[in-house]
Every structure is written in structure tokens, then in C-alpha cells.
Nucleic acid binder design. Sequence first.
RNA 1: CGAGGUGUAGCGCAGUUUGGUAGCGCGUUUGGUUCGGGACCAAAAGGUCGCAGGUUCAAAUCCUGUCACCUCGACCA
Length: 479
Amino acid sequence: MAKENKGFVTHITPRSEDFSQWYTDVILQSKLVDYAPVRGCMVLRPYGYAIWESIQRVLDKRFKETGHENVYMPLLIPESLLLKEAEHVEGFAPEVAWVTQGGNDILQERLAVRPTSETMFCTMYSKWVSSWRDLPMKYNQWCSVMRWEKSTRPFLRTSEFLWQEGHTIHATLDEAQAETLQMLEIYRELAEESLAIPVIVGEKTQKEKFAGANSTYSIEAMMQDGKALQAGTSHNFGTRFAEAFDIQYLSKDGKLEYVSETSWGVSTRLIGAIIMTHGDERGLRLPPVIAPIQVQIVPIAQHKEGVLEACEEIANKLKSVGIRVDIDDRDTLSAGFKFNDSELKGIPLRIEVGPRDIEQDIITYFRRDTLEKGSFSKSLLLNNVSVLLNQIQKELYSQALKFRDERTADVFNMEELNNQVQIGFARAMWCGDVECEDKIKEETGATTRNMPFDQTPIGETCVCCGKKAKKLIYFSKAY
RNA sequence: CGAGGUGUAGCGCAGUUUGGUAGCGCGUUUGGUUCGGGACCAAAAGGUCGCAGGUUCAAAUCCUGUCACCUCGACCA
């Protein structure tokens, strides 16, 4: 049942006029989040948190199917642990928040509010592993982390954010690499099949990789302003952390060996990706797989006899097959208001139930993805709603894919690259030197996204320096 | 952290130039009439004007300081 008061519903700034303002209008008015009294922090409201729960539901199932277990590590990390892996420290030190006092006493050693938990997992793994029989260990945790960012935006970059972080250790480098790619694939599947967001899957450059990783892989999505959003990452650490934290085991042939380690994570940033991929002038558009409410039933003239009862009957039928349905039975609100409200909230399918429908024994529906209204015989309810929800899921994906493809182009020189990254993604050949990466960033504002797994070359020479190219790579402006 | 902007009722704002009773719209509450694309009428509640100093008979308004937020740049899931 809808429980909210009316609240205010006002004008949403058009995307074309000011994309940033549109984003802010949508997230606040659809009641996903609100600003918190703490700098850079957001409050996830029930509707926003429900989307996160949907994402958790889908991912957690896949994690468990692939042999992972959930654990929980402490929020506070002693400074000495954080200092153990040099590159890792250097990467995270500037954005760590510190606890220096307990009660009235100054602490002997200050404690970091975790920015990520590699060091904590490593510390524990070093205690828990002694034999090859203990391996692999594949743990994940759902938690929040804190990074003291200079500038923040709800979902995209906040001081504290919710995420999952998987940390695994393996006997061999090959096993760790297989794990890294398997989790990346699960992220791709989540993005494309559940969130209806097409992603570029590939490897990050050395410059853009995670602090302390041997290699980092990512999924990259295009937002409606043509900028990229890194939507998930998976890292292979090789034995670097194992050496720093002394995580060793006795192998089958009795030798002391270092473990190979991975980590991988996605965050509530994914919700930002959903909004900026699918949203339109009326508000959110949520993919049915993760929409907290899949079908919104709006009673028309709900005071009239039989209307609410008819709504209940339809809702119960849909619930019986696991469809998430809600009846907006707030009285004193007009049907028109409720229509706009359900569209603002991005509910994929709306069913309008009024005296006419009841009399004619039909279901009148409205699709959020195409804004089409239609009707069918009530006897077809269960079948047709399922079909419609599937169609909406696919339609959102294909709209997003079409948009991305239209805004992606192959470029062969700096001028073309510069022009292309103003509107979207540029595919280019690259020599592999960080100097070219830096120069391109300097001159165009674009950074490398990733090197896709399909490395079919589109040319011979580096887009920047003209020397022999080594890699096909994506450039774009990024969040 | 550099540049610019904004803080007045739950939300959006006016009032500040020229100091003099705290305003408007939306929302909220109560009652009634409505109900197929953002309903209407009537009554009501709600504010130490971001915070701290100062000037003045008198400060939302002038001065000083400070905090927060927003936008744009440098760093990041």
C-alpha cells in the first residue's frame, strides 16, 4: 500500500538544458535519497534502499552459486596494517578518515575508517591459512566504506557509500586470474541483464588500475550526457599483498608458497548508473528485474463500490506469482497525480482500474518505457503482465545500447578523438605509453576507460604519438 | 584545494540596494465537494531569517568572522 503523503511534485529540469540539475531533481523528487547533515553523505530513503536490496538479492545469489561466503570485518583498521603495502597506502592515504580518540583518551595508534578492506582481509587470511587444503578462501562482505572525497554527488561519489567487497585467495596465479575474470563476468551479467545497462568490459591501464593491484578490470557504462561511469571493478593482486602480509601455505610437495589474491566490488554507484542511463523528462525508469515495485495499480474513482476490491483482486493474483505490486490507494489524490507520481518513480508498468475496466472485464495498462497505453482481457492478466515486464526489460536495454552505439566512434587522430569525447566514447589504437595517456587527458579532458577483451585492431598506429600501436582502447570523459 | 554563487516556514522563493510589525506559492492539518492525465472551497497550524560577534533607539537588511551547501576546475567505486 502506498503510505506517503503527497509531498511536493514540481518541475524536473530537462536533461538537455542541464543534465546535472536534472539528475539532482530526479533523485530528490523520486525520494531515492536526501542530503544528510554530514558533509558529503547521503541518506538512502526507503525507495532508494529498496533498489539496493534488489541489487544485493541478484548479486548475492550469484556469489553463493559460485562458491563465495559472506563475512563481516571491522570498520576500523589500525594504521600499521594500512601501511604494509606501499602502493596501496599511497593510493588511499589522501582520502582516509581517522579515529584518533576513544572516549576521552587519545589513542596510541590511530585507526582508519576503512576505505576498503584488503589489509584487514589479508591480516586475517594470514592467520587462517597454513595448508593447500585451506585454499581457496572466497569471502565477500556487504558493508559501507568511507573515502574523504573533495567533491561529492549522491550515488556517484559520497564520503560514505554502501558496497560489497569480495576478497579471495588461491593457490596459483592462474586460479586467481580465473576468479578475477569470473567475477567481472558476473558484474557484466548484473549490469546488462538485471540493470539493462550495456557495458564495455576490459582491462584498465597501469595508470588507472587499483592501488596495489597487478591488473584491474572494469565494466564501463555510458551515461546520457555521453560521459562514462565505471560501474564495477575486479582486481588481480598476484602475490603482492601476500608478500606484504605474509600469507603463505604449505603446498602439496611441502614447499612454502605465497597465495594469489583477488578483490572485486560494486557499490550504490550502480543506482546512479541506472538513473543516468534510463531516466527521462518524467523521472526514473527502472528495469523490472530490480524495480522495487514492478506494477503500480492506480484505482480510478476509488470511492465507488467495487473499485478497491477489484484492485486487491488483481494485486493478489500478481503477488501469487511473485510479481512486486502496489496499490496507490491514497485518497484525496486525483488519478492524474498518481499517474505522474508512478512515472516519476519509474515503475515499469501501471494498471489503471476504474468502473469502465471492471464493467468490461479488461485490464488497462501503461508502459513506462514506451509511454504506451493499452488494454487486454482480464483473463490474460498473469501471462500478459509477465510478457510486458520482460519486454520492458529488453526495451530499456536496447534503447540504452542504441544510444551508446550512436555515441561511440573509431578515431584515428587527436582532432577526431577530441571531437568524439565531447559527445561519447572514442575507440582508438594506443601505443601503451603513459605519456600519451597523460597528453590525451591534458588536451581533451578524456581518460582511458579500458582495453576491451575483443582486441581486433582498427589501425596500426597510436592515436596520439603515431608510433606502432599495441592496444585497442576506449577514451571518454568520466564521472 | 582554487574560482564563483547561495543560506529567510517541510520545499521553492520574495524582502537586503535605502535598517522600522516576518511575506508569497506549494506542501501539511481539519471539514466538505470531487475522482479515466498533476481537483476545488473553507478554516487552521507552522519561522530565535545558517551560526557567532559588532554598529544602532532599532538588524533578515550594515560591518567582521565562521560554518554548510551548490556549480565549475585538480583527485576518485
